[in-house]
Nucleic acid binder design. Structure first.
Lengths: 231, 231
DNA sequence: CGGCGTTGTATCGTCTATGGCACAACGCAA
DNA sequence: TTGCGTTGTGCCATAGACGATACAACGCCG
C-alpha cells in the first residue's frame, strides 16, 4: 500500500506539551541571544513567542533568563534546564525517527497462551513471544529489523543462556547493502522471510551471503502484537 | 526533570496524512454501517466527515463503499484496503507507543570514529557503536531497555559470532519486578548502570539476582546517538 | 538626561479546522 | 407516488492559533 509513517513528538508536563515548534523557538533564543531576535529570525510574532515562553515556564520551570534594559537593551539566555529539555527532546525524537525509518516484518498469528502483557503467538514461522494488548487472539506481530540479531549457528546462545526469548534458525536469502548498514533477509520457513538490519561490518565478520545458515534472535520485549481485524 | 514523551502518529501518502482522528472515523463507519451514524456517534458533523472521507480516498484510494437510497436509505462499508490501512496504522502506533513507554539509559560521549551513519562513541562505559547523525562529536547515546539482551557469561556469544556489535560485561545490581516484565539494572562500570527490559521468565531462567554476573549485548543499529549541546 | 533595544502586555485581524444547517439527489419499500 | 434515511454539497458560525501593531517599562550608555 506504500504509506509513509510519520509522527510528531512532544514532551508533556502539567498538561502543557513542548512541541517541535517550541524546540525551534528555544533553539533560536539560544542562537540569537534575545527573544525578540529569535521571533524575528523565525518569522514569528514576538508577542506570541513571549506568551509561549511564559506558558512553557509555567509547566516546565525556568527556561529563559530574560533581562530588559541595560547594554544593548537587554537579552535572553537559556537556562540549564532548558538545554537539558532540548537534549531529551532530541533524544526522544531520534528514537521515534528510528522507528519510523526501519522496516519491519509482520506476521499474523493467533494467541495460544497469555500471561499478563506477554503472550505466545502461533505463526507460520513458529511460536513467538511478544508484548500483546489484552483481549485479542487474532493478532499481527511486528518485528523491527533493528531488533533482530543474527548469530553463527555454532556460537548462537542457547535458549537457556540468553534473555532473547525468540530464536529462529534460517538461511540468508538476500543482502541489501547500504553504505554502512545492510538489510539481511533470512528465510526461517520456506517462503517466510525475516529481515534484519545489521552493519556491513557484521556482514563481513559473519560472512553473510545468500545461503549462509544463521540463527536469528530477538527479544519478546522488543516484539509487539496488535489486534488484527477479523474480517 | 520528569517529562512524559508523547506522540502523534500519521500515515502519509500523496501529501495527505491519515491521523488518529481519521482512524476513529473509519472505525466508526465500520462499526455503525453508515457515514451518517458514524459522525453522529463520534459527535462530529456529517458534512466534515464526508468531505474528509473524500479527501482520504483522493490520496489512499477507495476506502469506503458508499451507497445511497435503497433499503434503510443506504449505507457505507469499509473496503479491504481501508481495513488494511487501519491495521498498519495500529501496528505503527503500537511501535511508537512501545518507544514512548520503555525507558532508556543515556550516556554522553565523544565520537572517535565514524563511517557513514555509523560511529564509535567513547563513553564512560566503554566504546559503543551507534547510528549517529553527521557532523557532531559530542553526543548523547541512548540505549533502549528493550534492546538490551542479557546473557550468561559462559554462553554469551563471542563478538565474532553475532551481529550485536555492543557487548558489556557487568553485574546485576537491581531487579524491578513487574507482573510479567521486569527492569534489570546492570552495573557495567562502578556507578554506571544500564537497564534492560526482560521477561520475568528470563529472570528465572537466567537466575538473575543482584550480584549475578551477566553479559549485556545490544545492536549498533538499535542504538542512536544525537548531538549534545556543547554548553 | 535622552536614546536605544530589549521585555512585557493588550488589542485587533486573519487563517484554519471544525460543527451547524439547509437542501438536493438517490433508490427501495410501503 | 410518497416516505424515509442515506449520501453529496454549499454556506455560515465558532473557536483556537497566530501574526501585526501599539505602547509602557526597563536599564545601561553616551
Amino acid at each position: 500500500m506504500d504509506v509513509s509513517p510519520d509522527f510528531d513528538v512532544q514532551l508533556g508536563r502539567d498538561g502543557v506539551a513542548l512541541t517541535v515548534r517550541d524546540r525551534e523557538l528555544l533553539a533560536a533564543i539560544d542562537e540569537d541571544g534575545s527573544l525578540n531576535a529569535a521571533a524575528e529570525s523565525l518569522g514569528r510574532s514576538y508577542a506570541h513567542a513571549q506568551r509561549r515562553v511564559v506558558e512553557l515556564e509555567d509547566a516546565f520551570g525556568s527556561l529563559v533568563d530574560r533581562s530588559r534594559g541595560g547594554g544593548g537593551g537587554g537579552g535572553s539566555e537559556l537556562t540549564d534546564r532548558a538545554r537539558e529539555l532540548l537534549a531529551t527532546f532530541d533524544r526522544v525524537r531520534a528514537e521515534f525517527a528510528g522507528v519510523a525509518e526501519t522496516d519491519e516484518t509482520v506476521l499474523s498469528g493467533r494467541v495460544i497462551d497469555r500471561d499478563g502483557e506477554l503472550a505466545t503467538v502461533e505463526t507460520a514461522a513458529g511460536r513467538i513471544r511478544a508484548v500483546t494488548p489484552p483481549d485479542c487472539t487474532e493478532v499481527g506481530v511486528t518485528i523491527r529489523a533493528d531488533a533482530v540479531t543474527l548469530n553463527r549457528p555454532a556460537e548462537a546462545p542457547e535458549p537457556g543462556g540468553t534473555s532473547a526469548r525468540n530464536r529462529f534458525e534460517g538461511e540468508v536469502v538476500g543482502v541489501d547493502h547500504g553504505e554502512t548498514l545492510a538489510r539481511v533477509t533470512v528465510a526461517v520457513e520456506p517462503g517466510l522471510h525475516l529481515t534484519a538490519l545489521v552493519t556491513v561490518e557484521s556482514i563481513e565478520r559473519l560472512g553473510l551471503t545468500p545461503g549462509t545458515a544463521v540463527v536469528a534472535t530477538f527479544k519478546a520485549t522488543a516484539t509487539r502484537a496488535v489486534a488484527r481485524a477479523e474480517s
